[in-house]
């Protein structure tokens, strides 16, 4: 079977290739691989355009060195969408479009409820990432592989709270 039309690759293969991708980002692009900075950057660019005086008072942008111009991060953002599209298209994988079974079992089949909670979850997710200074990419992979104390602290706390949340929410499914 052709590797590219195969729906799932081994996590060890994917992990090794992701590791090699960071050799490229650090060695060639001279950048760290991250995703969540992009979201703060959108806020900064929009605020700077609409309310420059207010934006200047938001100390987050300077404290966390949020870049003012779209570039590396925006490229990653667009590339991620395209990469996800091509990978799923090659294997004819449409499973991402349906409401997940596990979700339906726990919360019912209402798509409105599913989307509303996903929206709220997105707010919580990025709030945590931006406060911590990165997400599962910037801290979890790029930071951890550089052996940063900040990134390992983030990694362990996200797992601890993820475990607690999952077992509280899915008590029946966990048994």
């Amino acid at each position: 079977m052709n590797l590219f039309t195969k729906q799932r690759w081994s996590p060890y293969l994917v992990g090794a290739l992701l590791g090699m991708l960071t050799w490229f980002t650090f060695g060639v692009a001279k950048k760290s691989l991250g995703v969540s900075t992009n979201f703060s950057q959108v806020t900064k660019v929009v605020e700077t355009a609409l309310a420059p005086e207010h934006a200047a008072k938001v100390s987050y942008f300077s404290d966390y060195k949020v870049p003012s111009a779209f570039g590396w991060e925006a490229g990653i953002f667009a590339g991620l969408i395209f990469g996800g599209f091509v990978a799923s298209w090659l294997s004819g994988d449409r499973s991402g479009q349906a409401t997940p079974d596990l979700w339906v079992k726990r919360f019912g089949s209402s798509p409105v409820k599913s989307n509303a909670l996903a929206f709220v979850a997105g707010i919580i997710l990025i709030y945590g990432a931006r406060l911590a200074g990165g997400c599962t990419s910037g801290h979890g992979i790029s930071g951890s592989l550089q052996l940063a104390v900040s990134s390992w602290a983030f990694f362990f706390s996200l797992f601890a709270s993820g475990l607690a949340t999952a077992f509280l929410l899915f008590r029946k499914q966990a048994a």
């Binding site: 945590g128 911590a132 990419s137 996200l158 601890a160």
Partner: peptide
Amino acid sequence: NIGGGLIFGVGMVLLGLCPGTAV
């Protein structure tokens, strides 16, 4: 880092995705 990570873990389970995988 730790406070953000704790908040992040809740969001990751609720969404079932993280920022990179969501995009």
